[in-house]
Design a protein around this nucleic acid. Structure first.
Lengths: 345, 345
DNA sequence: TTGAAAGCGCTAACAT
DNA sequence: ATGTTAGCGCTTTCAA
């Protein structure tokens, strides 16, 4: 009951293994006569033959699979991206091997190494930091690579990212239209492109609206998490800085901000308005309602997969990056604010 | 700049490749003299040698990796399970290849086949249905296997599951103590063990509390999703059945129930109380607050990984299954209910 | 159009 | 303690 090998098929069809190989491989099938192909196919089907991908991979140094590296599957932002990648790759016979790095560079390096050693043909990486030796190294080794959601500091690595600048502008316009004049920013990690870009766009938006850029209204969080958001918002609230609204770098930070407000018996949006970013699944169910900038997560994954496939098929091609448009999801009351109101102490 | 092979190391150390192989493999290192081991280690380090797992796998038919098959990564229940599995396996040098089946049996079969062909040594499966030919087949082929969260119809496949019966009992006791007497159940898919077990436990709990088991208060949902929950709750509400509380089969169904209630201008908990199951991440933030039964998702993953490792190390061993305890997370007002109140129409 | 032969990189049974 | 040899299952160049 051993799994049949190519030799078994070849013997059954009365041909040499090499011929059977050619007959079974769509790319070389044309080298074999019609009758032989049919005979081999029939025997293969009868025996239930399946090519051994390990042997094939040892020979060809390919694998019909790519690695998909995610920093944190518990962040609801990433599962839809995974799905987008899979939906493009699986139908054309590629496998996506998903791995979770838990934001740990060592774990990331180990996983990438393990996958490379297994001949994955490329990577979709959602873990990019601005300074990212591993990415530099992969790029230098000409490993096909597409970054999603975040970019690295270098411009020449292909990526698929949301249009954070426009997204922040949308969110800020919304707040300004509600009457807010003193707006704070709960910024994300400044070693990630998303954190930096959104902070920069925040400053730009203030200027565009003729508002003061007050450094004390900007607080940086160490990671994209609810806990870090609560900690950062706590610093902001306890600093005495004056503001009526907070633009959170993402939804998890916004949730943390909610925690910090509740802890200080401040109401939202009566005392402070909060706007989030990403519009993660289920965020439409939280209380108080959170207005958020929607990112096309599934499309980011799908586009990344397509970009990677292009790279695989045409290695010399000039690297491209894609920026996807965002839209604002307004939730909760849209009552305007007295711009002169003071935050309750 | 070719990746160094074992032969390169062997030549550099002046030994035969077989000796180098033995020296580098912890399991066979004792067969080689101390000096030779040192010399080989030094050369390997200098060259940056890494074993080629594809070649090793072709030879040994093993892979130091297992497959982790998840039905739907977008369901927040699963990422913590993934993490539990990884945290046990990675430190001992095993890789977990994660795959998402999107609840599609064909996709599941293809993924499992792809992984088996790559010599994964076992599976952690979170996709079990009660009737599940693929599981029967894997079990018949003696593929090491642990089911998580859900079980199949057969008792002899190892599994790690939550104690759904006790969980339902806790939830029902809570509702009864709040004064509810007519309690409905939004049941999950009846081809999954979780759906069936929770429904059965619901009936049992009614009897234990001396309450009537009214068939019109039980509605089955086709899948564990918010949409299916809204659809099921809609049927329940529109049927004219009388009830003051709903036990939802899981949190996603509970959220769907919220949608159905809101659509009909019914308030929660004033008109209908809802209790969920799983206590998924972020469910503590939804409005109105949802009481839910907490499942130790991370522990389920970790225990499953341990069970699988035992199977790998001791294949003949009698299969075990593990049931993990649950607890109730009460949220929102705990005001008691007039048992004679009528649901608003 | 097909066959022969070599080899991808490694391990393990056997021999020394 | 180390070397020899064979082979895991496949693809691919070369020859016929």
């Amino acid at each position: 009951m051993r799994r049949p090998t190519l030799r078994d098929v070849a013997e059954g069809a009365g041909v040499h293994a090499a011929t059977a190989s050619r007959a079974l491989n769509p790319a070389t099938r044309h080298l074999v006569s019609r009758e032989t192909v049919q005979r081999v196919d029939r025997v293969a089907a009868a025996l239930g033959y399946r090519v051994n991908p390990v042997a094939r991979s040892l020979k060809t140094a390919r694998s019909a699979s790519i690695g998909l590296i995610v920093p944190d599957l518990m962040n609801p932002l990433f599962p839809p991206i995974v799905r987008g990648v899979e939906d493009v790759l699986l139908p054309i016979g590629y496998n996506a091997w998903i791995a979770n790095t838990d934001n740990d560079p060592a774990r990331e390096a180990a996983t990438v190494e393990a996958m490379r050693a297994r001949n994955v043909e490329g990577f979709v990486l959602a873990t990019a930091r601005l300074e990212h030796p591993l990415i530099d190294q992969l790029d230098a080794a000409d490993v096909p690579l597409v970054l999603v959601n975040r970019r690295t500091g270098r411009a020449d690595v292909p990526s698929v990212t949301p249009d954070d600048v426009s997204g922040v502008a949308l969110a800020m316009r919304h707040l300004v239209e509600l009457g807010h004049r003193r707006i704070a920013h709960l910024a994300g990690p400044q070693d990630l492109s998303t954190g930096v870009t959104r902070l920069r766009a925040f400053r730009q938006a203030l200027e565009d609206h003729g508002l003061e850029v007050a450094p004390e209204r900007i607080v940086t969080c160490k990671e994209w998490s609810q806990v870090a958001g609560a900690e950062g918002a706590g610093r902001l609230l306890d600093s005495g800085a004056e503001f009526t609204a907070v633009l959170a770098g993402n939804d998890l930070l916004a949730l943390g901000c909610y925690d910090a407000l509740a802890q200080r018996n401040l109401r939202c949006p009566e005392d402070v308005s909060v706007v989030g970013f990403n519009d993660i699944p289920f965020i439409d169910r939280v209380s108080p309602p959170l207005t958020s900038v929607r990112i096309p997560q599934y499309d980011i994954g799908a586009e990344a997969a397509r970009l990677l496939l292009e790279e695989l098929r045409d290695p010399g091609r000039h690297p491209r990056s894609i920026i996807l448009p965002l839209k604002l999801c307004v939730r909760g009351s849209t009552a305007t604010v007295d711009p002169h109101r003071e935050r309750r102490r």
